[in-house]
């Protein structure tokens, strides 16, 4: 698929993947352990490294998007009115927090409660960051972006990418319950995305909103990608169910989970990439200016 927005696709997905990992990690892994007063899980260092890696990939690709990256530091100078300025600031704060958290994880695995707070803070920053990211696109000049579908899409992307990835990484570690809940997330988000799609499309095609042009672009110029995304969602759901029913309380059977979890994650990632590419095709001024 041709798109001039690949750097933005990768940037936004990478940041959302990272934030999604942190949120899922915090809520579905750390939180239950914390409540059950299990010792702090050093075996999850890798999760943080992956989240950090994703954030760094995001930062690198955000530079590739710029025409004149040498001036990049200036982009922090208009936090007052520019959501883009806020986003870049947010990415830096989030990445710094994440880096701090990760380092602490490795250096002071026994920090326990304070580490948990740091993870909470990082995840919360991630949640706010995703909101800021969506605000960039919620501008009157781009009506096909200027709706609740934009933050909704970003949050769902973050959650499903985080959940499916952690399901994969939990195979040898996670509890039966957390595995089940991650699998449920892996299944339910694509289901919701599919369910929302007709609503989104009828909104896109409504003459009062995107002038009907958004839908036309979707169905005329990008029909193959549109169907590809549907197929990938369905595959993700199917693999999600496969994974769900493979999860056993007997953790020695966990290796059976590997194939479906990997396939589910791969199809979800692919679905989100196509989804995001399609999102950027909606960069339209409906009147044609």
């Amino acid at each position: 698929m041709k798109s001039s927005e690949w750097p933005l696709v990768i940037f936004s997905l990478a940041i959302q993947l990272s934030a999604g990992i942190m949120v899922i990690y915090d809520l579905f892994i750390l939180f239950p352990m914390y409540r059950s007063r299990v010792a702090f899980p050093s075996k999850y260092h890798w999760i943080l490294l992956i989240a950090l890696g994703a954030a760094l990939v995001g930062v690198i690709f955000s530079f590739l998007h710029l025409g004149n990256p040498t001036n990049a530091p200036r982009s922090l100078s208009n936090i007052g009115t520019s959501w883009l300025s806020r986003e870049i600031t947010g990415v830096l704060i989030y990445s710094a927090l994440l880096m701090g958290t990760t380092i602490l994880h490795f250096v002071m695995p026994s920090a326990g409660r304070s580490l948990k707070w740091l993870v909470d803070l990082t995840a919360l920053t991630g949640v706010i960051l995703i909101f800021i990211m969506s605000k960039i696109y919620m501008i009157p000049a781009r009506p096909a972006w200027n709706s609740v579908f934009t933050p909704l899409g970003f949050y769902m992307a973050a959650i499903v990418m985080g959940a499916s990835l952690l399901l994969l990484f939990q195979i040898n570690h996670g509890s039966w319950a957390s595995q089940k809940s991650l699998a449920i997330l892996t299944i339910s988000i694509p289901v919701i995305q599919l369910a929302i799609l007709p609503i989104y499309m009828s909104w896109l095609g409504h003459p009062d909103f995107a002038g009907g042009k958004g839908l036309a672009i979707l169905l005329h110029n990008h029909l193959i990608a549109f169907y590809l995304r549907l197929v990938l969602y369905l595959l993700a759901i199917a693999f999600g169910f496969w994974a769900f029913f493979t999860i056993r309380s007997d953790t020695t059977q966990n290796r059976l989970l590997f194939a479906p979890a990997l396939l589910a994650w791969a199809s979800i990632l692919a679905a989100q990439i196509v989804d995001r590419l399609l999102f950027y095709t909606q960069n339209i001024s409906p009147e044609g200016f």
């Binding site: 998007h65 710029l66 025409g67 004149n68 990256p69 001036n71 990049a72 200036r74 982009s75 520019s82 883009l84 960039i136 696109y137 501008i139 009157p140 000049a141 781009r142 960069n283 001024s285 200016f289």
Partner: peptide
């Protein structure tokens, strides 16, 4: 001297005024 070429103004303008010089 300040522009970073992020093209966000291009999105924000409803009239297509800002132009990107590749």
């Amino acid at each position: 001297n300040k522009c970073i070429g992020c093209r966000y103004c291009e999105w924000a303008c409803p009239y297509g005024a800002p132009q990107y010089n590749k």
